[in-house]
């Protein structure tokens, strides 16, 4: 199992944070372009899912899978969007994303008055805590023995 990348978008579509761990294929476009593309896709998938749903949705769009990877999506009622890309063997990551929001983002960004909420996160502490947390996940760790 592997975790590839993590994205954090605010409600306006600004990419607040991006991290990668085992991303093998580098894109040719710039990061900014990639963020815009990613946000646009999420926005479209969300409205796509809600329009096509035959019943009232509780949670909306949660994840999608391709032949190579799985994208996990979590959105707070305040519009913060957390995205985690993993390989196919990883199960439900909702709790993990929720945990990143409540014990890393809220603790080290929201509660730090020097961190602006609508600009990319530069806090080293946040960076460190997130990296530490992701690397501690079982979904991440087994990748080491496997690869």
């Amino acid at each position: 199992m592997t975790i590839f990348t993590f994205y954090l978008f605010d409600r306006n579509g600004t990419c607040l944070y991006y991290a990668e761990w085992n991303r093998k294929k580098q894109l040719t476009m710039s990061k900014d372009e990639e963020f815009k593309l990613m946000y646009g896709m999420l926005f479209s998938i969300k409205s796509f899912a809600s329009r096509l749903s035959p019943t009232d949705m509780k949670e909306g769009f949660l994840n999608f899978t391709t032949s190579k990877y799985k994208l996990h999506f979590f959105e707070t009622p305040s519009g913060l969007k957390l995205i985690l890309n993993t390989d196919l063997s990883v199960g439900n990551m909702k709790d993990v994303l929720q945990q990143i929001f409540s014990s890393i983002y809220v603790e080290y960004v929201v509660k730090n008055p020097l961190c602006k909420l609508d600009q990319p996160i530069t806090s080293e502490l946040f960076k460190y805590k997130l990296d530490e947390y992701v690397k501690s996940l079982s979904a991440f760790q087994t990748s080491k023995t496997a690869s």
Partner: peptide
């Protein structure tokens, strides 16, 4: 309030 809401959502774990 703008910051407190995030703390609230994280703690109360509440939907929309």
């Amino acid at each position: 309030g703008v910051r407190l809401i995030e703390d609230f959502l994280a703690r109360a774990n509440m939907g929309r």
